[in-house]
């Protein structure tokens, strides 16, 4: 499906989604798809949620630059491999890094993140200076 310039203009989120796809395609290969994220927006606030069970808290890093946020961390193996024989080996472990682009510049000082039951939730407000301002006409 191709979108015209006008359509993109009318739906900035479609464009935002397209940009994210492009960004992730060009970003570091291999782990760029992990973790899967959901992005929620309410005007000048965004919430990113991601399921990253078993991740070592110490290794978790969230960095914000302009309108991008990068999540990285690593998940250790649950059990040292030499200790037993594996009948199923489906869990993923290793390092990950993913960059997500938002449609606004993020206020890095006000970013909040919680990691509970393997779910990371980050709330990212828009940078105050970038918000539209109302100018009073005297």
């Amino acid at each position: 499906m191709t979108t015209t310039y006008l359509e993109r203009l009318l739906d900035p989120w479609k464009e935002f989604d397209r940009m994210n796809r492009l960004l992730n395609m060009t970003a570091s290969s291999g782990s760029s798809e992990y973790p899967a994220v959901n992005v929620w927006v309410n005007g000048d606030k965004a919430v990113i949620t991601t399921e990253i069970p078993g991740v070592d808290r110490e290794s978790m890093d969230i960095s914000v630059s302009g309108n991008t946020v990068t999540l990285s961390g690593s998940r250790p193996a649950e059990e040292p491999e030499e200790e037993g024989s594996y009948h199923r080996h489906e869990l993923w472990h290793g390092k990950f890094s993913k960059t997500i682009k938002l449609p606004f510049n993020i206020d890095g000082d006000k970013v909040k993140a919680t990691y509970r039951n393997g779910v990371l939730r980050i709330s990212l407000p828009q940078l105050e200076a970038d918000k539209p301002r109302k100018i009073n006409v005297s």
Binding site: E51, I52, P53, E90, L91, G118, V119
Partner: peptide, 22 residues
């Protein structure tokens, strides 16, 4: 859920990824 099943000498250990569950 994705699982790991590891057999050891005395027991079998199952790990399952269930994010959001407590």
């Amino acid at each position: 859920p994705a699982v790991d099943i590891v057999e050891k000498d005395d027991d079998i250990v199952v790990f399952a990824d269930m994010p959001g569950v407590d």
